[in-house]
């Protein structure tokens, strides 16, 4: 289990990185935390001719908040994000989901952006990004574009990134008072990818009715998916037990889950319903609470 040969490039700044990505196009892979890429390369499931290591690119490790947006640069480690007071306060869902990723030593190398770019349909962080209505900031030599999370994930391990492009950051709107979020999952072993996971954000209006709701699932499709029927069922309801049950029951509508040795498609549909119910209950409670306790 050893990687095939490749050329190693370690750009110092973003322009250099983008030039290299432009030059090598589809032959190149970005190396961030390496916690997925190196695994794939060891198994020769990926054999890029060129590896562009972005870990030394200046400025990509910024985690900052301005104008109601939290922005995580491409080399912000999962562990940093999870432990960041800013993230805890302003995007607690990201911290809660992040704590389910692998184990501390893996998270201290792995990056949030790397997980998003990897687009594993079972992964927690892409799902959290989707539930948070986040955006992916993409750069290439020809400029920058911002892609809605809804549009970024196109299939298993595939995204709307084109050759020559890389993700420089992800952005999420800060979670405001009155919005509750929750992430729950079932993994067969602590730290493993979940069989199914649910990220939910629920906003309660002053009238106590449920306003905007976003529910995203992992392990339930070829990419992180929204449970739109469940969202619709909950939105406008009183957020009570019956409403949550109704929404949960609809969480598996339209899903076409993957199946593997950890769970069949039917089981994942089942979990989607159960976990949606649990995530919604917690998110609704948190929305009603004073603070967004995690």
């Amino acid at each position: 289990m050893k990687p095939a040969a490749f050329a190693y490039l370690a750009p110092r700044d973003l322009d250099e990185a983008l030039d290299q990505l432009a030059e090598h196009g589809a032959d190149a892979r970005v190396l961030a935390g390496g916690q997925s890429l190196v695994r794939l390369m060891n198994a020769r499931l990926a054999s890029p001719a060129v590896v562009v290591d972005i870990n030394r690119v200046a400025g990509l490790d910024a985690l900052e908040r301005h104008n109601g947006t939290l922005r995580l640069g491409a080399t912000v480690r999962q562990r940093t994000s999870e432990l960041s007071p800013d993230v805890a306060a302003h995007a607690p869902l990201l911290a809660e989901a992040g704590a389910h990723v692998a184990h501390a030593p893996v998270r201290s190398r792995g990056t949030v952006v790397g997980s998003v770019a990897f687009a594993d349909p079972s992964a927690e962080l892409p799902t959290a990004l989707l539930a948070l209505d986040g955006r992916v900031v993409v750069r290439s030599r020809s400029g920058e574009r911002t892609v809605e999370a809804d549009d970024f994930f196109t299939g298993p391990f595939t995204t709307s990134l084109a050759p020559g492009e890389m993700v420089v950051a992800v952005e999420v709107p800060v979670t405001t008072a009155g919005t509750g979020t929750a992430f729950v999952e079932v993994a067969r072993r602590h730290g493993d990818l979940p069989v199914c996971g649910v990220a939910a954000t629920v906003t309660r209006g002053d009238d106590g009715r449920v306003g905007a709701t976003r529910i995203a699932l992992c392990g339930a499709g070829e990419r992180p998916v929204r449970a739109r029927a469940a969202e619709d069922a909950l939105t406008g309801s009183d957020g009570g037990t019956d409403a949550v049950a109704e929404a949960a029951a609809r969480a598996s509508e339209g899903l076409s889950p993957i199946a593997d040795c950890h769970g069949s498609a039917d089981f994942r549909r089942h979990l989607a319903r159960v976990l949606t119910g649990r995530a919604l209950r917690t998110a609704i409670d948190r929305a009603a609470g004073e603070a967004n306790d995690v």
């Binding site: 079932v186 067969r188 069989v195 950890h262 769970g263 069949s264 089981f267 089942h270 979990l271």
Partner: peptide, 8 residues
């Protein structure tokens, strides 16, 4: 007794 077997 995996989660799936138990649920079944």
């Amino acid at each position: 007794m995996t989660p799936e077997r138990v649920v079944n």
